[in-house]
Amino acid sequence: MDATTRRTVSMGLGVSLAVSMYGVSFGALSVASGLDVWQTQVLSLLMFSGGSQFAVIGLVAAGASGFSAIASAALLGVRNTLYAVTIAPTVGGGFWRRIVAGHWTIDESTAVSIAQDDVRHKRLGFWITGAGIFVGWNLMTFVGAILGDALGDVRAYGLDAAAAAAFLGLLWPRLSGRDPIAIAVVAAVVTAWALPSLPPGVPVLVAAAVGLVAGLWLKRGRP
């Protein structure tokens, strides 16, 4: 194994390990939100996208309608479409290979892939990170769901606050520069204003729409 390959492998495995660890918090929070262990596991197996998964369980816990939960998960999943477009040429051909690649196209596998210098290592980085997180995230989800089931009153353990902290942790790396911070503040203010007056789940969708308009307006005329 040459030095570049070794670097790609260790980067992929390191990211996989770190991300998989918080599969525990997803599993525990999910059963605390009212999902059973199987429903929790299906989200990690089939949806397999952290932000969308946290959105579903957060909105279910808040008593939102199924429509709000589905719409929020899907809107958060739109970025995966763009990741897929970006890395499709490096993943290689074959129908089933592309289906699996599609399933494993998430923030981290894309990030590790595009950080490599040539096509061979981009491909290697994508597959190692995708496979590593798929296995680790699902195992840790199961552990968390079993632990969460045994906990009982989740507010006493601060699990509702842990969910808030998890969303902030997902948002934080995206707050680079003035525009992203402005968009986040607008979305947060709109949500706080809408929470007491609109049905559960709806404030999130309103904030997404207002944030989108504000963000595109900020960006007008600039490359």
Binding site: G51, V185, A188, G211
Partner: peptide, 17 residues
């Protein structure tokens, strides 16, 4: 639009939670 949507949704979910 994709990156704006992701930021707005996550910020809204932080607030909701």
């Amino acid at each position: 639009a994709s990156s704006i949507l992701t930021i707005a949704l996550l910020a809204s979910l932080v607030t909701t939670q």
